[in-house]
Design a protein around this nucleic acid. Sequence first.
DNA 1: TGTTATCCTGACTGTTTAAGTAGGAATTGC
DNA 2: GCAATTCCTACTTAAACAGTCAGGATAACA
Lengths: 170, 170
Amino acid sequence: MMFSTRAEYGVRVMIALARKRGSGPVPLAEVAEAENLPLSYLEQLVAKLRKQELVHATRGAHGGYELTRDPSTITMAEVVQALEGSLIPMQCFSEPGSGRVLCNHEIDGFENCATKLLWTRVQGGVARALEQTTLAELAEFAEHGPQHAQPARRRNRGGAKPSGRTAVGT
Amino acid sequence: MMFSTRAEYGVRVMIALARKRGSGPVPLAEVAEAENLPLSYLEQLVAKLRKQELVHATRGAHGGYELTRDPSTITMAEVVQALEGSLIPMQCFSEPGSGRVLCNHEIDGFENCATKLLWTRVQGGVARALEQTTLAELAEFAEHGPQHAQPARRRNRGGAKPSGRTAVGT
DNA sequence: TGTTATCCTGACTGTTTAAGTAGGAATTGC
DNA sequence: GCAATTCCTACTTAAACAGTCAGGATAACA
């Protein structure tokens, strides 16, 4: 598996906040009950979102969380990165000095690290998918289904995919 | 992190076998020493590759492993899937009956599961990157560097990326 | 036939991460 | 003051990861 439940749960919280936007702070307990997720765990996740200034907290009674920005300006890349940490497909991307071998090709410099080419492409694919998906789009999808949701911006001109349906197959 | 060392090490073994193609079976100990990886661990990984019929084993003295097919016909999607298992970005993609919550939206059917839309796109991005990268390409890259390596097939016509360099940035 | 090189398998282990739980302190509205 | 809420830290349990180890099966070769 590639992402943990942190990403799953955290994204759900963000979607819930996006859908309740404009009605003041939303208590986390409300989201937890609606989504059937453990409150204490969500608290830890929301802390990460707050540190990245994706949500704003109001303490005390009638407090709760609100989005800091418009959902259409929040990409899933920001959200998932806040929740999961850096979005690297392999450890050697971030920790060149770690004890494990992984990227010994870089040390001796004798040959080109072919696996790094591979992981770079994978990372690019993930990053593209996350950046092109906005919170607004997911919130819209959750409310009205596939018919209204549209990706942020598609770069593929040309006649690809004439179907108006957004793909959600297995 | 998204992939374990299984994928890293296993891909390296495959690249090593691709580069030694045509010279008979390559003993795993040779690969282990060249790449500075633990032999016993590699043995477990190669077993996965063998079960997917990506490599063929010859037992006994002068035995070893060989690729079963031409490297240009082997995509990284096959290799990584053999090593890591299914390439799903989130557990609920495969285990709907697991105890964890994850995809409760599917159960009640009341609203559309927006996160599934997100993970489907992510999975698509990963799958595309892995499918478009062949073993031959990585082996070529490892030997001669970026100048000769070319992706299997690029679908983007138009003037994107005029640089002849294959991107391997951090 | 015995030895050696290699594949093959399963069990075992130490470390890290995931997925929460638990308890309480701080803040605010009434 | 009291209830509702965020906030913070430590703790726990289970699983996965990254190996290690011991031994068995098979084949080449002298």
